[in-house]
Amino acid sequence: MSLDKATVRSIAELARIEVPEEALDHLAGELSNILTFVEQLAAVDTEGVQPMTSVTAMTLPLRADDVTAGGHADKVLANAPEAMEGFFTVPKVVE
């Protein structure tokens, strides 16, 4: 599969990574190479094969409904690039 610039632009938008317009061509080439490489899989007959999400034979363990965390807003906010009045802050979002 060869990706065009528009597709790369929209993937980058979905992934929220800014890509300068002049870098799109090169990136499209790189990503296309990778896709061509992984597309070998199309040759494998997977009729009737169940997808494998996890290698473990276990099922999901359940924990008790106990309050064991929280109560430390200071620690939660300590690494924040920006915070005010106990909140994280971001550029204003208009709905």
Binding site: G86, F87, P91
Partner: peptide, 9 residues
């Protein structure tokens, strides 16, 4: 809460 920021809780 603020003229240019959104606050996140």
């Amino acid at each position: 809460q603020h003229p240019t920021k959104s606050f996140i809780d």
